[in-house]
């Protein structure tokens, strides 16, 4: 099954899915932690943290990519020790693309998770406390399951947005076929190439199909989840 796609076009699709998946995988747990701090925490600097998390929404993606390049470049303050001590290089790699995508979609996932958390009735957590559940216990058995619709929404949104992240990725990890050339980058390259219109159209169609499929899947899962939670 090739759908008339060339090997390198498939590669871009696979790479996009991989980058989006990895970005969601690395950002989900920190996003839940940050959302919890923002929704429930009472500490100085909460508003600052809130603003910091939302920065990627308002700062141009290219600037985010440039910032990552500065920090995680081989001579950057984080990139240098990573490279020298652990042999990890993020620039111009798939891992780097996933990191750039994760940073860009982080506010989306935090916002959705936070909404999910704020929908949890604190009375149920209080009930769990009176039944002997300590902080971690009640988070895992009551709060987390009840906020799962928010986590699902955040995951799907971040995944869908991650499939299409362009500016930060191309700035941080460049546009290397097979390594960092995700769907939008491949579409961009095709439009820059003579005779690439057909490729661009096919890839755009796939992008569209993936987005629609994601939305439908999210809707289906959300319905099941609400039924599971007993909310009609």
């Amino acid at each position: 099954m090739t759908l008339g796609l060339a090997a390198e076009e498939w590669q871009a699709v696979r790479l996009s899915l991989e980058v989006a998946t990895r970005s969601v995988a690395v950002s989900l747990v920190p996003a839940i932690a940050i959302a919890w701090l923002l929704a429930r925490g009472r500490f100085p600097g909460r508003m600052l943290l809130d603003a910091l998390v939302h920065l990627p929404l308002v700062v141009p993606p290219v600037v985010v990519g440039w910032g990552l390049l500065m920090l995680f470049g081989i001579r950057g303050p984080i990139g240098a020790p990573l490279h020298d001590w652990f042999g990890i290089r993020l620039v111009f790699t798939t891992e780097g693309a996933a990191l750039a995508t994760a940073v860009m979609s982080f506010p989306l996932i935090v916002r959705a998770v936070r909404l999910g958390l704020e929908a949890v009735d604190p009375g149920l957590e209080a009930a769990a406390r009176t039944l002997g559940a300590g902080p971690i216990d009640r988070f895992l058995t009551v709060t987390l399951p009840l906020m799962s619709p928010g986590i699902l929404a955040g995951t799907v949104t971040a995944f869908a947005a991650g499939l299409g992240e362009f500016g930060a990725v191309i700035t941080f990890v460049s546009n290397i076929p097979g390594e960092t050339q995700t769907l939008p980058l491949a579409i961009y390259s095709a439009t820059q190439t003579a005779g690439g219109e057909a490729t661009a159209a096919r890839l755009a169609g796939i992008s569209f199909a993936l987005a629609v499929a994601g939305l439908l899947l999210a809707e289906l899962l959300a319905r099941r989840m609400h039924r599971w939670l007993g909310r009609a």
Partner: peptide, 18 residues
């Protein structure tokens, strides 16, 4: 509360919906 061992019955039951 989790170490007081006081069982509470709330006005609104507060059963875990999931």
């Amino acid at each position: 509360p989790e170490r007081r061992r006081c069982g509470v019955v709330f006005q609104d039951a507060r059963l875990f919906p999931h």
